[in-house]
Design a protein around this nucleic acid. Structure first.
Lengths: 248, 248
DNA sequence: CTCAATTTGTTCGTATGTATG
DNA sequence: ACATACATACGAACAAATTGA
């Protein structure tokens, strides 16, 4: 028995969209190179076990997206001018992290009242008495790639409110050489865009996202910086250096 | 004008599924606690700007999933027995990584011929002359959470074929104290499950995944271990230690 | 040039799913 | 619960373009 049908049924999403996503992926991963001919309708309808019209509907979508070009009697071909995915590297080491975000220019967006409380997991430090909450959208080439919700301990914020209102917060914190950061860490999970995030990032509702939760703790164990950053899932790439004996 | 409609239109996915996913997420993130009453149909139809029947349809789904319980005349309530999401921590540091995967018991699955060539990005080392390719499913509590495709340099594999056929490869490599690993690194992106992965992981086609690409290089600069591991997106959590002056 | 094989394009009928008011 | 409109999915048949024998 075909287990493919079971896989389809696991999702309530229309068949042609499931097929389209599978084909899109083959193109993105290079399974089919730019300019190359993809499988024929007949091969695809057999492989995916769906009707001819359904495969066509899926390919219609890809054509609208500019991913493929069709030619009657010849076949369907991957477009030649696919811009290779430009990844946004999320840094996993402190100095690199700071230096990459230093020059980001966030667009600050109004905060709905009341401002949310920072979520602090056990071991992420004691909360400060009060926080200033800022919300901003980070863009590159006019395209938004992340929304950040940042809590800054009030006593830290008050020392440079203008700076915090115009630049990303972490580098400012680092430059304050009398606010010593003792520890910083970050967790990362895969999530999905809620309505507000989807609108700010210009992505579909529930599109996959990377949700970073970043906390910096001062020498008294107080969490002076608590950020929740939601990245577009389709552009982030983590590069983790596990081990390097050659340099050390 | 409502920008919500635009957000909906960005996705071809049926409205009630988009709404269902949004509600599901509120429950999973704890926006609505177990046992708590969720918004009324009327509130939801206003918030999401859809017809009442569409909201009902969305909630029907959640009820089938066992996430909510409805009571005529009272409201809809979050189920009390939602098992809290148990995250699978992906380690980002070498010793922790090795020790956590050391005791994993993979289930090896047949490899389709021909075995794929390892993908090596620039800077990831020279390829070995030949590789042995193994494919396995990793599970926890009987639930599969990752599929791994592992390339092991042939000359390394031949020294302990039985071990490589029954345990995870990295710890075996580490134990071979004459095969010196000079560098190891890992990249991580968000992907989507293809048909084969979906079936092995028992998730819907195109469900979000975390795709890890892990490479270990020996002292001659040869990539002796190249793994592509696909994790279920709904269970992985990265914990990245950015900075810790308190211990060092 | 013609013919056949291949491949995409189009249409029809039917059944079911989605969304509204 | 009902009536309505449109979308999704199937199978089948036929049309049109391309290719090579």
């Amino acid at each position: 028995m075909s287990t493919l049908a079971e896989t389809y049924k696991r999702s309530p999403i229309p068949l042609y969209l499931q097929v389209a996503a599978a084909l899109r992926r083959r193109i993105e991963t290079g399974h089919w190179e730019p300019g190359e001919k993809i499988s024929t309708l007949e091969e695809l309808e057999i492989e995916f076990q769906v009707a001819r019209v359904t495969v066509r509907q899926a390919i219609d979508l890809l054509q609208k997206e500019g991913l493929v070009r069709r030619q009657q009697g010849k076949g369907t071909f991957v477009a030649r001018n696919i811009r290779d995915k430009h990844w946004l590297r999320l840094e996993t080491e402190w100095p690199a992290l700071i230096s990459t975000i230093k020059d980001n220019v966030p667009r600050f967006v109004p905060v709905k009242n009341p401002a949310p409380e920072p979520r602090l997991a056990p071991g992420e430090g004691r909360p400060a008495q009060s926080y200033k909450f800022l919300r901003s959208v980070q863009s590159r080439d006019r395209e938004p790639f992340a929304v950040a919700g940042v809590h800054i301990a009030r006593h830290v914020y008050e020392r440079a409110p203008k700076a915090f209102g115009s630049r990303t917060a972490l580098p400012i914190l680092v430059e304050m050489n009398d606010v010593a950061i003792a520890r910083a860490h970050q967790t990362l999970v895969i999530g999905a865009a809620d309505a507000e995030t989807a609108e700010l990032l210009e992505i579909p509702l529930n599109a996959p996202t990377a949700e970073a939760h970043c906390v910096a703790v001062d020498e008294e164990g107080v969490a002076v910086y608590v950020a929740d950053i939601t990245y577009r899932g389709d552009c982030v790439k983590l590069d983790i250096n596990l081990f390097d004996r050659s340099k050390r």
